[in-house]
Structure formats: C-alpha cells, structure tokens
Design a protein around this nucleic acid. Structure first.
Lengths: 106, 106
DNA sequence: CTAATATATCAAGATAACTTGTTATGTCAA
DNA sequence: TTGACATAACAAGTTATCTTGATATATTAG
C-alpha cells in the first residue's frame, strides 16, 4: 500500500499531476456518473486493460478514486474529499486581491 | 506567439500540467505577493536563470502568468482569470451528489 | 561605442511518464 | 478441477519533461 508522507507542495503536485492526463480525465468524467468496474471503463474508453490499470493506479495513489473488490470485478468510484482538497489548493493559490506590493529592481 | 486551439480536455491538461511542478508552484506562491521580475525570482528561488525562464514559459503558455517588459527587466504577475478557470474545471469534475446510478456487470 | 546586465532560447543529456505486450493472481462457471 | 474471465503488475520501448550550460538579443550605463 503506497502510503508516502507528503509535504504540502508534494501533495499538490501529486494531485495536479494526476489530473493532467487525458485518459485520467476521461476516467473521472465517467466515474462522475457513479461507480464503474474496470471492464466497463475499458469498453467505454476503448483502452487497453493494462493502460487503464496504470491510470487507475495513479488516480488511486493520489486519493482521487477508491476501489471496491466484488468477486472478480473491481469497482472504482470518485472520492469527493479529494475534490474538496483540490479546490482548497486552488483557492489558496489565487492571487490576493490587494495591491502590487514591493516593486523589485528597476 | 504560441496560440493553439484547445479542446476542453486539452485545456484542462495544460492547466493542471502547469501546476504539477514544484518550481512552478513556488513561482506562483511568490507572485501571489505581487508582480516580480525574473531576477528576483531567480534570487529568491535560487534557481538557474534558464530554468526559471523555462518554467515561466510553461506558466505563461498556460495563461497562468503574464509578463510586462520594462527596460531590461521583465515582470511577471499572476492572471486571476486563470484561477477562476481552474476552479470552474475542478467544480465541473466533482462527483454529482446523486446516487450510484447504473450498476455495471456483476 | 563598448561592456555589463536581464532575459530568452537552444542543444544535449538525464529523468520521468506513458504505452504495449506479457505474465501472474484470483474468482467463477462448467 | 479445468478453463475462462477480470484485473494487476512487470518489462521494454517510446515519448515527454526537466536541467544544465552555452549562446543570442535587447537594453542601459559609462
């Protein structure tokens, strides 16, 4: 179980990296409709099984999805908390509304 | 001027990719305090100039920062709209609150 | 004009990420 | 128990990204 301790920045990098791939965004889009097994993702996205497995792991390691084993199927679903976390990160990097502050050089 | 037409997904990938690097997050954090010239970023982050230049370009191409030439200095600042755009993207990929929908296989 | 400074760009190498094909593991049906 | 299926993991190759050092361009000071 890949449980690594992250600095704040490392965590942001992990999350944003997980979101910066087309296949993974497609997976997220599909999972918005609810839990899905890998087989259905494979079919819908017309992607090789090992490729899906690779991307699901990236998403899972980042905590964006979780899996549930059910017989020979594994179902994946989104983890709402992860999206809250991402929203917080984005909010915290927005520019402050205040003035331009100290002018360097020139 | 690198102006490429993006699909919605491509745009998301570009933005999230731009945010998935430590140096770039540090740049953003610094620029939250207001406009800065490259020289100051180089000093503060203790990074080689060409490295900063590379990362600033990634951020600029993604529309996250913009530059302003002023004599022999170039000042960079955050583009607030970009963060609104990112927030919207994140909001739109959050799981819907509704039930589990169609159960595949099993 | 010349030298120094600020920045960008480029080329080469290093590292990381992704894809594909293959094999391994577990589960179920016959 | 055997075979088929669902999924994960691995290995090798490919591609993308990042870093570093070198060079190019513009601007200003002297």
């Amino acid at each position: 179980m890949a449980t690594v301790v992250h600095s704040r920045a490392d965590r942001a990098i992990e999350l944003f990296h997980a979101l910066s791939d087309e296949t993974r965004l497609e997976i997220i889009e599909l999972l918005r409709k609810g839990e899905r097994c890998v087989c259905e993702l494979t079919d819908t996205l017309d992607a090789a099984q090992s490729r899906l497995s690779f991307h699901l792991r990236v998403l899972k390691d980042a905590g964006i999805v979780r899996d549930r084993k059910d017989g020979r199927w594994v179902h994946y679903e989104l983890v709402p908390d992860a999206f809250e976390e991402i929203e917080t990160l984005v909010t915290e990097m927005k520019p402050r509304v205040v003035g331009q502050a100290t002018n360097c050089c020139a």
